[in-house]
Design a protein around this nucleic acid. Structure first.
Lengths: 353, 353
DNA sequence: CTGAAAGCGCTAACAT
DNA sequence: ATGTTAGCGCTTTCAG
């Protein structure tokens, strides 16, 4: 004897039960359910009735093992409660469903170790695609790890997708779906510069963190274009927390009075900035302009409504899934950059004086 | 011959490859990896080395099929971009990971049909638990469907969990994790009544939708307790959208002037309410008190900061997973109601005059 | 159009 | 402590 005693879940109805009840063979049931093979109408009817009567659903694992595709897409994010990720996840889920896939999620809380574990787990699950969402650190070690994952997944017939993260190198079997991160920051900074702002603080620099690096680059390029030399002490290091925006702003105000605009690395940080300015009695935008990045719904609730850079979150997610699953079609590119644009609201004005 | 030609993904490394490379039998590799069986140290080392060299990961499907448990937990939500759901999801994910499970997500956009499909899919996946998050309609048909699902999942050794939705009946094999929805509304309404408010509008009634029904019930009970008869025309039907809050408030203001407080069914609706009041020149809280429900982070950004009912989102999610997975332990209850409480902020004051 | 037979990769009794 | 064997539930050649 072999196999094991039913581990806890007792009798699940299997395809054999259906076959017996319908008075046909197992493969016939399989054919009816797959629907990709000729089956007599009467037979099909018998089978379907048995299926219904028994409340049968196929065992996805058996199916996957026998060779049919997995029908799952995996996505790995830092934190699903951050609107930035939630909205991308939304796009992923939508497209996945449209393509007949289920979604596996993993959150890493920004921990590279957990990202690693997550990818391993996804590999075990044989997901059709593994989508890594959001920025990461540029360290060579990370880059190599990504390349390695890309190859492993590729060999296994799956696909690594980097969504909102730059390519780890040419010739890596991965799908890259970026948004024009630097471009958005460039446009926003230009917007401020063209209004006359010359001392624009950038809050939330994180050396080596891709997302931020790109945003800072856009900030710099705009300054160059306007032939303005940005004051390096105006670039402040920080994370993505609201509390950071608050504190950094208080410090900034305590230190100097020449700043006329604040570019927060994310909308959430900008919320903290606005709060600090209100607490300090600095009027926005009359005395200080404030801008953010991401365009999450909350920006509408801020006072004043926040001018920010719009990212096509849902489309990023949808595109990630679509490109990965259709990578074998010749018309489907494997590296795209989606556009960003400024959403002008009420938190920007020309500098005072 | 049988089996099928590798469908697209070519050679995945299997346990057999590892066994060969390590010079041991397949079950030995299995034992090393499961770690629940004595294995000679030297053998273990050889195996682990082979695993590393080959970048081997076990095939989750084969494993599941052979009887080991699935190691996945599924959750079904309306919309992952709603903070209410995202935060519960966060708790689910956290606890699932802690219990060594992966997470499957499905979003239904509130469509009962899609909820049905989702549960079917989850059944195929043999998730260890299927967590339905959020309210639903009370229709008898839905109730029966839930009971049916509960039984099917139970028979299959899985578990239906209702998170933030009342029990569909006694004697149903399901885990219920609620929050004190009516209690929160009761406390909030009492808060307003005790400050002297007598005309409290409730925006967002949805007949038959569990979440709302309970909130309205709390509203009513509080009125009874204060021996105030609520004006039925003050209960307005609507959905969970910000735009509804806006429009309903404009209408309300156009119709009558005696209302001194507005209870919005959710914080998002409250955001619309506040916006409408600002546009109408009604000061909050001096001329009108406004409260919400859910306590999502955004409430801090509203002007004024919103007084609302706090729901322990993360804990709901964590509890759902924990209770479901440990349902066989005698100390683990299968129906809990987590507490809610008011979070007092700046949007409430005594009525004018 | 349908059934018989083989095998996907793994785990769990059964023997040593 | 390790190898042998059987089988999880399904899909897929291959025969008829």
């Amino acid at each position: 004897m072999a196999g094991r005693a039913a581990p806890r879940g007792r009798k699940r109805t299997t395809i054999t039960d259906v076959a017996e009840r319908a008075g046909v063979s197992v493969p016939t049931v399989s054919r009816v359910l797959s629907g990709n093979y000729p089956v007599a109408t009467a037979t099909r009817a018998k089978v379907l009735r048995a299926v219904r009567e028994l409340d049968y659903v196929a065992n996805a694992h058996a199916r996957a093992l026998a060779g049919a595709t997995t029908k799952t897409v995996a996505f790995v994010v830092h934190d699903i409660t951050w609107p930035f990720f939630a909205h991308i996840a939304q796009g992923v889920e939508e497209q996945a469903r449209q393509e007949g896939r289920m979604c596996l999620v993993c959150t890493t809380q920004g921990d590279p170790e957990r990202e690693l574990e997550a990818v391993e787990q996804m590999r075990e699950q044989h997901a059709d695609a593994v989508i890594l969402v959001g920025g990461g650190f540029e360290a060579e070690e990370n880059r190599q790890r990504l390349v390695h994952f890309a190859r492993l997944l590729d060999e296994a017939g799956s696909r690594l997708v980097l969504c909102g993260r730059p390519s780890p190198g040419d010739d890596v079997p991965a799908t890259i779906v970026e948004y024009d991160n630097a471009g958005g920051a460039f446009a926003m900074t230009s917007h401020l510069l063209s209004l006359g702002h010359r001392r624009i603080a950038f809050l939330g620099v994180r050396p080596g963190f891709t997302t931020v690096v790109e945003r800072v680059e856009g900030y710099r390029r705009a300054h160059e274009t306007f032939r303005v030399t940005p004051d390096p002490t105006l670039l402040r290091e920080g994370d993505f927390l609201r509390s950071y925006g608050y504190e950094a702003t208080r410090e900034l105000l305590a230190e100097r009075t020449d700043v006329t605009a604040i570019f927060a690395v994310t909308d959430v940080v900008a919320a903290g900035v606005l709060h600090a300015l209100r607490d300090s009695g600095v009027r926005v935008p009359e005395e200080m302009s404030v801008v953010g990045y991401d365009d999450i719904p909350m920006t509408m609730e801020l006072t004043p409504a926040l001018t920010t850079v719009h990212i096509p979150h849902e489309e990023l997610g949808r595109t990630a899934v679509r490109l990965a699953l259709h990578r074998h079609e010749s018309t489907v590119p494997q590296h795209v950059v989606l556009g960003t644009h400024i959403a002008v609201r009420d938190s920007v004005a020309p500098p005072p004086m």
